[in-house]
Design a protein around this nucleic acid. Structure first.
Length: 941
RNA sequence: GGGUCGCUAGCUCAGUUGGCUAGAGCGCCUCGUUUACACCGAGGAGGUCAGGGGUUCGAAUCCCUUGCGACCCACCA
């Protein structure tokens, strides 16, 4: 097939992805469930682990290679192989489950780019790689969307039972589902689709119930009446972590309670007051402690208590205490055993208050209370203040602290164990500092409210006793039969708690449920190799996964954590619908291609940081894809031409089959061994030092990528590839190959680069792979390249050529006046490197001719190259160049002075490492020689 | 109040244990259509590494300090 002139991603991406999926290449090689072919009761995957020979391992690796003649694995064959497969290293990574019925946003785009790069890299490295996709029922999020839809149709949630609502949302989600899965495919996620885990899958619910039961039996679960943050609109409680605190303007009123004046921002709650607190050290009020005061607008007397909570400096120093509607007051109430009077109902209306106020909304009540207090002369002051107010993170409604019975997890022990394992360095964090942040959080963690009053979620498997006579039976029992609303046990009737679990309670099992871990199947894929997710859910998710993983399995759930920051817009602003600066990843994929998007979003990104992103970086990625495409197009055309010649001539057709000739069979020990004699790799025309040089550069690129990937430095890996492919391979090696060709080398180096770029740009590399005439199989299952052999001395000599060529180009461009850019012949004197590479230098510099000097020096001498080279320009041009020359001499002189100054410092010579001192000495010599050459040039004029 | 991160070229970012002339992409300027690529090629300009102090032969890098910005936790009657 012919390569089109430019790479058009839309033409290939869908087909390429479908081909991968059909071939089953996303599945891990080592089976994910126990295998026992020989029925000896032992999991074959582990049977021969100890006695395994390394050669077995190598064999398996080769089978996965795209360069092998053997039929490709589809995962199933491998699965049957059992014990041989067990010797493969397993690499597992899970996808933070996107909302099942939502669309992907830019954060998902980043997540996939990161996770899939890791996945593909490890797959190419030969690991049995398992990237497990997921979908989240997204309890509250989805519920909000559904409730809105319900309202739009003129219904409310109260028309339906909980179970009816659950069924309706299920259908709603099924209807919308699939979109996000298509989008993940568009982004190139090479995840094992058969293993997709939905957060409401049976095995998830099973595992969650098992954990809950264990916790219940261990006494870690309790039902408690506590203040919870309650959204009056959504009618549900939240965990602390879901609360959005915002600074707001408010008023601080002063109200007279007899002799005491209290300060409050919420006068309407005074009906719930059960005390007034003053600071025990506050001399103004000491005499009142233990006495009572009259609660305005009521006929109640309430005590004055001494509590540290009252800050003498703030307001009047006296605080009204409303334990049922304020978190601090709740604690004060606990300390002083105060009654809790609920005066605000769940829907935000006043209850348990004098008739006059009963049924008013909190807002109406506040107005009325203030009016009445004013009339009675009890309102003695008001002050505007700014204070932070809790809001629903979804709808922005002000949250009402509400006294409610909820299920709580006593987190103390869980957190303690987690902290121990974290301090024991069992999980490596990227960025590193997040570990300390996490430990800090765990140290101050409060009990976790896991009840939610929404129907869309996993039902809490707890049943409440309704038969009042059965006094000996417990009030609550655990039972898995949550499909029933009512059960009987020992003649006692119990009804199911209508609440559902906080999503994070089930999500905290994610690594366990995705890998199918169980006591019976301690899978090699658990713990995960890495957990990649957003830094913003470090507390909500990562912390809970660690606690839960340790509680359930006794092991940390993952070995490493990579946290990405927010993707900001190009000006570093948070993306938001209201600002209109939201970037849709799928649109960018459609416009520039999946690879361009992935390369673009990885560029300039490092762990844990919120960083800007713009279309420019995607364009840059697109350009690289196109460059690679054209590189391949050129090489394919050379290969075609070569084969044609070979057919005609018959003399070097077989050279094309020497692919791999330069590949090292064993790891190199040093740079000197392994240089291949030219005759085995070269066509008769070859005399090109660029070949050894590019081998060296590709080796070093691959080495760099290995380090970068290990340290999760994606941006650097991409940058290394970018410059190797573009600045080195295309600009120097390919240009030089236009003069001397080495077809086998062109093939193998292109393969190396394609494979190395594949993790980051999967589609274009696979498309090229499929279009090249000599490759077979898929690049996605190819073998990560080994080292290329090269002669280091020749490779280094090519640097000289590069210096010469660059200086000719630079000097040509710097010629004065009308001569700028004009090409003049190059003269050389007694120089074997130049003589041996005449054609190459001529082609790269585009000088009209290169000749021996033959006689006295003339023209412009090239100074930097340290070779006797002259640009044969007319006398006049040389004279005009004089100023530039003088400037150059001065500049080099300044550098020389700096170096000399360093050597004059006895401390430097004494204390700096020897090699640095030597380096400085060498540099001084070089600079001096350069100045001498420049001055000689000057004297010629 | 406690904590984290950041401040490097016009913009967005690299710069690993202190040691080449501080790098890249995009943008900018000059030149160029040479049969892989104008989604291109060649050349170039542009930085007091936020300010100050310290340690060191040597600091963008380590320490102290000031300023600016982002974020997290707690509190705010």
């Amino acid at each position: 097939m012919k390569f089109a002139k430019s790479y058009e991603p839309n033409q290939y991406e869908t087909d390429i992805y479908a081909a991968w999926e059909t071939a089953g290449v996303f599945k891990p090689k080592v089976p994910t469930i126990p295998v026992d072919d020989n029925s000896d009761g032992v999991d074959d995957r582990f049977e021969e682990l100890e006695g395994a020979e390394r050669t077995v391992f190598e064999t398996v690796r080769d089978n996965g290679s795209g360069m092998s003649e053997e039929p490709r694995d589809d995962g199933r064959d491998e699965a049957r192989r059992g014990s041989t497969a067990s010797n493969l290293p397993c690499y597992s990574i899970v996808m933070p489950p996107p909302n099942a019925n939502g669309n992907l946003h830019i954060g998902h785009g980043l997540t996939v780019a990161l996770e899939d790069s890791l996945t593909r890299y490890h797959r190419l490295k030969g690991d049995s790689t398992w990237y497990i996709p997921g979908a989240d029922h997204a309890g509250f999020e989805t519920w909000v969307v559904y409730e809105k839809a319900l309202e739009k149709d003129g219904h409310t949630r109260f028309e339906f039972s909980r179970d009816e609502l659950y069924a309706r949302v299920w259908d709603f989600v099924q209807m919308q589902r699939g979109n996000m899965e298509l989008q993940l495919r568009a982004l190139g996620a090479s995840c094992s689709w058969d293993d997709l885990t939905f957060t409401l899958d049976e095995n998830v619910i099973d595992r969650v119930y098992t954990t809950f039961e264990k916790m219940w039996n261990d006494g870690l679960i309790y039902r408690g009446e506590k203040l919870v943050n309650f959204c009056p609109k959504h009618q549900t409680a939240f965990a602390d972590i879901e609360v959005d605190h915002k600074d707001e303007k408010g008023t601080l009123w002063e109200i007279k309670y007899d002799e005491l004046t209290v300060s409050t921002t919420r006068p309407e709650t005074l009906f719930g007051d059960t005390a007034v607190a003053v600071n025990p050290e506050d001399k103004r009020y000491k005499h009142l402690i233990g006495k009572t005061v009259h609660l305005p607008l009521t006929d109640r007397e309430i005590p004055v208590v001494a509590d540290e909570h009252a800050d003498p400096e703030y307001g009047t120093g006296a605080v009204k205490i409303t334990p049922a509607h304020d978190f601090d007051d709740f604690e004060v109430g606990e300390r002083h055993h105060l009654p809790r009077i609920q005066v605000i109902s769940e829907d935000g209306h006043m209850i348990n208050v004098p008739d006059k106020y009963d049924g008013l909304t909190t807002e109406e009540c506040r107005k009325q209370v203030l009016k009445d207090l004013k009339e009675q002369g009890l309102l003695t002051g008001e002050k505007k203040i700014v204070h932070s107010v809790a809001h629903c993170y979804k709808c922005g409604t002000v949250l009402e602290p509400m006294l409610k019975e909820q299920w709580f997890i006593d987190v103390e022990k869980l957190a303690k164990v987690a902290i121990e394992h974290l301090e024991n360095d069992e999980i490596k964090f990227y960025p590193e500092n997040k570990k300390r942040v996490l430990i800090n959080y765990l140290k101050n963690l409060k009990d976790w409210n896991i009840s939610r009053q929404i129907p869309w979620g996993i039902a809490i498997p707890m049943f409440r006793k309704v038969t009042t006579e059965a006094t000996d039976e417990p009030d609550w029992i655990f039972d898995r039969r949550t499909n029933l609303t009512e059960i009987e046990k020992s003649g006692v009737t119990y009804v199911r708690d209508e609440d559902t679990f906080d999503t994070w309670f089930s999500s905290s099992h994610w690594p366990i449920v995705c890998t199918d871990w169980s006591e019976e199947n301690p899978t090699p894929y658990y713990p995960l190799n890495v957990m990649e997710t957003g830094a913003d859910i470090l507390f909500a998710w990562v912390a809970r996964m660690i606690m839960m993983g340790l509680y359930v399995t006794g092991e940390v759930p993952f070995k490493e954590v990579y946290l990405h920051g927010l993707v900001l817009d190009e000006h570093g602003q948070k993306m938001s619908k209201s600002k209109g600066n939201v970037i849709n990843p799928i649109e960018l994929v459609a416009k520039y291609g999946s690879d361009a998007f992935r390369l673009g979003i990885l560029r300039g990104r490092s762990a844990g940081m919120n960083q800007a992103f713009s279309e420019n970086s995607v364009i840059s990625g697109r350009n690289l894809c196109n460059k690679l495409w054209n590189i391949s197009r050129l090489i394919q055309s050379i290969v075609d031409e070569d084969e044609l010649e070979g057919l005609e001539d018959g003399s070097f057709g077989n050279l094309c089959d020497q692919r791999g000739a330069r590949e090292a069979t064993e790891p190199r020990n040093d740079g000197r061994e392994g240089a291949v004699p030219k005759s085995t790799i070269s066509s008769p025309l070859t005399n090109n030092m660029g070949e050894d040089w590019i081998c060296r550069e590709i080796n070093s690129c691959l080495e760099q990528i290995a380090t970068d990937m290990k340290e999760y430095r994606f941006a650097e890996a991409v940058e290394t590839l970018y410059s190797t492919i573009w600045d080195k391979y295309a600009d120097w090696f390919l240009e030089s190959q236009k003069i001397y060709r080495n077809v086998p080398l062109l093939k193998i180096t292109l393969e190396h680069l394609l494979i190395a770029l594949h993790p980051f740009a999967p589609f274009v590399t696979e498309t090229i792979w499929q279009n090249l005439s000599w490759t077979d199989g898929f690049i996605i299952t190819a073998k990560w390249p080994g080292e290329l052999k090269y002669d280091p001395i020749t490779a280094e000599q090519f640097e000289t050529i590069r210096t010469i060529v660059s200086e000719v180009r630079g000097t040509t461009q710097a010629l004065p006046g009308a001569n700028k850019g004009k090409k003049y012949p190059l003269l050389y004197d007694n120089d074997s490197i130049v003589e041996d590479n005449l054609l190459l230098i001529k082609a790269l510099t585009r000088v009209p001719d290169i000749n021996p000097l033959n006689g006295a020096p003339r023209g412009l001498r090239l100074a930097l190259a340290n070779h006797e080279l002259y640009l044969d320009v007319p006398e006049k041009v040389v004279t005009d160049y004089k100023d530039a020359l003088t400037e150059k001499i001065l500049a080099v002189g300044r550098e020389l002075d700096a170096l000399n100054a360093r050597m004059m410092n006895p401390n430097y010579v004494e204390k700096a490492p020897e090699h640095l001192v030597k380096e400085t000495k060498d540099q001084i010599k070089e600079k001096q020689a350069l100045i001498d050459r420049l001055k000689a040039q000057q004297s010629l004029i």
